[in-house]
């Protein structure tokens, strides 16, 4: 138990930065490489790292199983809902032009919302896949 001290402390040190990097990749995705898919996987990687180092129970405190499983449909609904919101303004499905006064800003906002939906679905799916495989082995 004492031998993995460095591993445990190192993991604790690195965890917030992984999450910060995931958020950076998510919200800076409009200006640099990144987006919902990559950020979702990096965020899921953080939970998996917690699970590998501290055990499954600790990981489930960070990301409860019920929560990650609900994230799978919620993200998809955010995406589909953003598309359907176009209808409210008399536009086509997935046309974000009327979300703001300036069509370009509307599109920017729409892209941000859609990427957020992708982030939720991807991270939820990856973490619940990992939980499902690990639990099967117990």
């Amino acid at each position: 138990m004492s031998l993995d001290l460095i591993l445990r402390i190192g993991t604790k040190l690195i965890l917030p930065f992984i999450l910060l990097f995931a958020l950076y990749v998510q919200f800076h995705g409009d200006y640099g490489p990144g987006g919902g898919f990559q950020a979702g996987v990096i965020a899921a990687g953080m939970v998996i790292l917690v699970s590998i180092t501290f055990g499954l129970a600790a990981a489930k405190q960070v990301a409860p199983q019920a929560m990650v499983e609900r994230m799978i449909p919620v993200g998809l609904l955010i995406y589909a809902g953003t598309g359907a919101a176009g209808f409210l303004f008399g536009r086509n499905y997935l046309d974000y032009s009327s979300f703001a006064h300036d069509p370009a800003h509307g599109h920017e906002l729409g892209i941000l919302l859609v990427e957020f939906g992708v982030l939720i679905t991807v991270s939820g799916t990856m973490v619940s896949l990992f939980y499902a495989f690990v639990e099967r082995g117990r």
Binding site: G29, D30, Y31, G32, P33, G34, G35, G36, G83, L94, Y96, P103, A104, H105, H107, E108, G110, I111, V114, E115, V118
Partner: peptide
């Protein structure tokens, strides 16, 4: 049209949504 310089993001989420 979208204010997003990263073409991959704008095509991914907007043009080919």
């Amino acid at each position: 049209e979208t204010n997003v310089p990263n073409l991959v993001s704008s095509i991914l989420a907007d043009y080919r949504g």
